[in-house]
Amino acid sequence: MDLIVLLPNGFKKMGWVLIGLRIFLWSIHLFFDWEPEWLVVNYFTVFNSQFFSDTTWFEFSKQNMLYTILTIFPIVGGLFVGFSKEKIEDEFINKLRLSSLLWAVLINYLLLLLVSLTIFGAAFFNVLTIHMFSVLIIFITRFNFLLWKNRKEMTHE
């Protein structure tokens, strides 16, 4: 059976570090209003639309990269964690991984459907922000739960 193409096992640790860093940065941003000036850079944007200003295309503009970091770290970290090989990667682990991914996509969109029908106004945009990461979160949680469950079922010989 052909196994799916995955990153080497070492990427998993890097992924957890990125996720940890994101949680740390987001926490200090949230609780201490941390928004460092040194992260404001002149950045090339394809499309830029700010409140009370014109919409621009393909222009350099001053951007605080904190928000980009807070978006990129969990996505890259989540992809590293979810798509790195286990120490022993075989067809059974592959099956658990793929079924977890299928499960995550389904649950994710069912939740979005539910949220779309019940949450309105500005709160809905907060939900959409969470939705950027939720499929990865559900996938990683489900996959690791199945791995843990299978390990638990192993009897000592």
Binding site: E86, I88, D90, E91, F92, I93, L147, N150, R151, E153, M154, T155
Partner: peptide, 12 residues
Amino acid sequence: GVSRQSIVAIEQ
């Protein structure tokens, strides 16, 4: 060349 988890799952 598989994990022990796989053997357990197959046996069960």
